[in-house]
Amino acid sequence: MSHPAPNPSSVSRRQFLREGMRLAAMTGAGAFVGLSSGRTGAREHYVWQIDPTKCVYCGNCATACVLKPSAVKCVQAYEICGYCDLCTGYFVPEPNALNTGAENQVCPTAAIERKFIEDPYYEYNIIESRCIGCAKCVEGCTRFGNGSFYLQVRHDRCVNCNECSIARVCAGDAFRRVPASNPYFLKTSAH
């Protein structure tokens, strides 16, 4: 009696039920694939990016990213840069002098490099390893200059969270999912 005979009718009934449900689940999964095939982009996956026309340079990018420091960095669109001597992205309001002294720079991490090209033009480069994405330079450049400094999600850093934690708090609602094949907003002319 150590191996009690199973109740054959009960077992087969359960077996049948299980088989039936599995079949139903398989059919359901198949139907689901068919249904979603229309909604599936085989060639696309998505990454997060900032629409610079909507960015209000609120500073959340520096603080809200799951990465510390943030995966959002300032980029320089050289094509539309005015190469100004008095760069409103580089210098604080009312700069003491137009030189690289710390008292004149707006960037808290000195992540912008100012390089003399020819009179009166200066080139400005973002040193990305230092940039924290605080957008202080972006505000100056966008409001009073050409807007060649702007924030972008850097995809060599971004871990592409399913729900971007900066997007959740973005003051300008500027974050969106973009196709990975075209992952940057490139400013070629200012708008």
């Binding site: 003491n96 710390a102 008292e103 808290p108």
Partner: peptide
Amino acid sequence: ELKQQIRDLDLALR
């Protein structure tokens, strides 16, 4: 002097 102070502090902070 103040400028130098700012630069020193800025460097220390960074």
